[in-house]
Amino acid sequence: MGLWKGAVTARRYRVVGQVPQGWREAWRERLDAMAFREPTGTTGKEELEGWVQIHNLLDTSFSRMDRWLYDPFAVFALRVDKKTLPAKLFSATVEKRCEAWCAERGTEKVPAAVKREIKEQLEEEWLARALPRVTLVEVSWNVRDGWALVGTTSEKACDRVRTRFHRTFGLELQPWSPLDFVEDAGTRSSLVASGPSAFGGEA
């Protein structure tokens, strides 16, 4: 998104719900509770997600408010880690291991159960040494005015942030609409009810 520098690409949301008294302390606790946790053991292909500071994706503590709360803005990022394996190389290696299994036993075919076991073993081996692909989506929340920017326009990534935001704060990120800026309700209704204009547009 570029909170610090560079161009900003973001979707704007309203934050719907009640912000509690003493929200600063409450948000600190909730961000810490839903922060990214480095896995303690070997991880598989599952995605791991959690909040991190915008300063560095390895900073996962929100105990220092001056690292994430710049009144009226609370800023943090959703980190998502996912390990993937190179599919073609993986298949080729499985085939080679199957050939080796056949050669050892003087047979021509590998039983399905054995092939599955070879695959699972190889996957486990490779995932243990694979580094995850890490994505980050920044969030900037104006707590005072009740809106937030999510630093992407990808539907999937926005939905993931919205879900975690709700689980963390109990508040909903509701998509902003340009028509929200139309003050007059009658004008808004007539615009929504209007059909396409006939100048070669969406007619």
Binding site: R14, Q174, P175, W176, S177, P178, L179, D180, F181, E183, A185, R188, L191, V192, S194, G195, P196, S197, F199, G201, E202
Partner: peptide, 19 residues
């Protein structure tokens, strides 16, 4: 600002940009 978000029909968005 309205209490509920009012989704904008797609044709209005492109008309706005052309306008």
């Amino acid at each position: 600002m309205s209490a509920e978000a009012t989704p904008i029909p797609a044709h209005l968005g492109s008309e706005l940009l052309l306008w």
